[in-house]
């Protein structure tokens, strides 16, 4: 957490509304994307983003920068909000769910790449997928991911590396298959 963000949090905790506005601006897209990746539905994503920020607002006073990272804290609220959203429906809960790519604005080339990546990520288990997405797409540190998902930092690193290993193997088999087809 940088000093500017810390100052914003402290200002916000002291009742500076504009500081909260700045924090909101800083985190809106990240949290929206994070939630959208999980629910793939615009209206649901909006509801859950609103819930997340309301919860953040209600609990901001309790946030202690000495004990945790704000980035991880607000992601954790978002993640728990999504869990609450799905609670009672264990069969469909998938915290590492991938977005509905059809709703995402992207070029055709990028879409192809998205499809390819999605296919590979499908092969991973839910935890691996969630940690890879948090690490790569959200650019979160292992320490932050550990706080968000409630696992140790080392465990997160291990899960990430296993996920990457599986991706590599599936890519390798794809290349072999492709080579065989060509020949």
């Amino acid at each position: 957490m940088d000093n500017k963000e810390l100052a914003l949090i402290q200002a916000c905790q002291s009742g500076n509304n504009e500081a909260f506005g700045q924090l909101y601006d800083q985190y809106f897209k990240k949290i929206y994307s994070f939630i959208y990746y999980k629910v793939s539905h615009k209206e649901s994503a909006e509801d859950l983003v609103a819930d997340t920020f309301y919860k953040a607002l209600a609990n901001l006073k309790k946030f202690n920068s000495a004990q945790g990272n704000f980035n991880a804290w607000i992601y954790r609220i978002a993640r728990n909000t999504v869990i609450d959203h799905y609670r009672g429906s264990k069969d469909v809960q998938d915290l590492g769910a991938l977005p509905d790519f059809s709703e995402i604005d992207s070029t055709i080339d990028q879409r192809l790449s998205l499809e390819e990546v999605r296919d590979k990520l499908y092969k991973l288990n839910e935890t691996q997928r969630e940690i890879i997405i948090l690490r790569v797409w959200h650019d979160l540190s292992y320490q932050e991911i550990a706080e968000i998902v409630g696992k140790s930092e080392d465990n997160c690193k291990m899960i990430f590396s296993r996920g990457i290993k599986e991706l590599r193997l599936s890519l390798a088999s794809l290349i072999i298959l492709f080579t065989m087809l060509i020949n």
Binding site: Y32, Y37, E103, D105, Q110, S113, V136, W137, I164
Partner: peptide
Amino acid sequence: IIEKLLSSKPDIKFN
């Protein structure tokens, strides 16, 4: 693989 993952980050549009 990492380059592909990075470049494939979806750009989520919001209202």
